[in-house]
Write a protein that binds this DNA or RNA. Sequence first.
DNA 1: TTATATCTTATTAAAATACTCGGGATTTGT
DNA 2: ACAAATCCCGAGTATTTTAATAAGATATAA
Lengths: 150, 150
Amino acid sequence: MKLSTKGRYGVKAMFDLAQHMGEGPISLKSIAERQSISEHYLEQLVSGLRKAGLVKSVRGAQGGYLLGKEPDKIKIGDIIRVLEGPIAPTDCVSEEDPEICSKAEFCVTRTIWEKVRDSIAEVLDSITLETMLEDAKKIESDRSLYMYYI
Amino acid sequence: MKLSTKGRYGVKAMFDLAQHMGEGPISLKSIAERQSISEHYLEQLVSGLRKAGLVKSVRGAQGGYLLGKEPDKIKIGDIIRVLEGPIAPTDCVSEEDPEICSKAEFCVTRTIWEKVRDSIAEVLDSITLETMLEDAKKIESDRSLYMYYI
DNA sequence: TTATATCTTATTAAAATACTCGGGATTTGT
DNA sequence: ACAAATCCCGAGTATTTTAATAAGATATAA
């Protein structure tokens, strides 16, 4: 039940883009450095995000990437689905063409995995890049408040 | 974000044991046959469950396994944790000694994985083998009702 | 025209997964 | 006493997935 680096790096990279909105195209190199990710590896991930319309690219020198939509329109679930595939604790309850099993209609185990799938999806779809930006702002102000009282 | 066969087979096997309570020790061979699982592989999984006290074993001919506690005392989360390890979409939010990262206190990404972890744990800990037995009974009666009206 | 980027495909090392195999220990029934 | 059934344990292995790395083609700003 682990997320792979694809999903983790992807969310980090997207959040990085959100934090640098308005600064023009952001190069993978700078994202890779800030987030400590291999640039080449990140390239592969971002390729998928671009095809899904979650980022836009600008080629050439001074090029880079921009968010494909407003941050409040990009759910973490969208990012995870592009990079990790449909949410599916088991193949028989995959969000996308689940693997039909002959016992499916009376399989009690299956209903558990459905609930797990739905609870994961609900969390990931309730959080957007905008939410994350707000959280980051809040953490920042809490920190400075804390510093003040020391 | 997939469960491995360990978790899936383990839950299936435990549910099988629950369904055959009162019939004395149930052999791995019969469980493996009913659930279409390799017997040798199942042996390894059940070994862990036994060490965790979720099943009791009876050795020798006519031996087998019994539930280690009442079905309403065995949560699906208990089974999963024994077979798949602590619930942890990422190492930094593992239920058991999470891998501390220097940026943890102001990491916005981390809070997402915490929410995912908690929602998975909540689902898995809200379902017991007893719940599953009730569900199975309900499905069975719905099926016979359906048959009646045909 | 050169440096800076994105884009694309192929290869690979390491780890995890899902078994398989062989043999030993324990108990029951004959 | 013996054979059959069963749990118990450790090692080995094929396949798949993961996480990169590498190499080069394409596009654009300066």
